[in-house]
Amino acid sequence: MNPETSGVTDRRGLLQRLLQVGATALAGAIGAILALSNNSVRAADGTVRRKYRYGMVIDTRRCVGCRACVVACKAENKTPPGVAYTVVVEQAFGTRADDKPLFMTKPCFHCESPPCVDVCPVSATFKREQDGIVVVDYNRCIGCRYCITACPYGARFFDFGEHYPAVAEGTPYAQVPSPEYGQFRKREPDESPIGNVRKCTFCLHLQDSEGRYDKAAGRWPACVKTCTGHAMFFGDFNDPESEVSRLLRERQAVRLKEELGTEPNVYYLL
């Protein structure tokens, strides 16, 4: 009897069927893994096809360690105690003749291969296709802090729900929302972003609908805008005429921990 006409599958037919299903599933799984292991916005020759590739160039010789960037970021993003999207680390070199310490402001580097993104169990943190900014979906994030462990640069912070005394719960200042992600969230107990991991967004809420910043209009990352020594430069690396592209061409720049293959989009001039 022909198994196809009878509607009954004999053992051989079943085995064939299973093999087919198995082979399809395997091919699918391999395809999915291959697709996932390549950055999807990366073309075959390794170049990045993105509308914008935002990044920074930071001149450590111009940095005086005033921390205006830290304060400007706090004022812009209304970050609570213990959360600072950029911090200034300083290191004294006792052997240096001029006795000048190194100051280095350190925002998120928005890496080309961000290790924080790969470890997130719920894909709550990801690299935006259009401009490469690494963001956190506050509604998706479960607050496991795995990404904090995975970031080699200490760019991520957990929001423990602390308040500065001046903006403590119940004060009128506490009602001032943060413009982050254009979501204008107020700090409420147990509500995101409390209990989430937070990080620098390059102030993406200042972009226009096309994803562009405007330095002249003041729609520019708060830290760069406020830097007293003009040590911070921001811009689009895809644009060869941008300030940051020019600086990379003309000066010797380094990126931190190149050996990890993260390819930061923030460069330092020494």
Binding site: I33, L36, S123, G143
Partner: peptide, 19 residues
């Protein structure tokens, strides 16, 4: 230990198989 205990189901709804 996680920040939002009520969101555990996210791991089943939106799993990142690279994690």
């Amino acid at each position: 230990d996680i920040g939002h205990m009520d969101r555990v189901w996210h791991i089943f709804a939106y799993p990142n198989i690279k994690s």
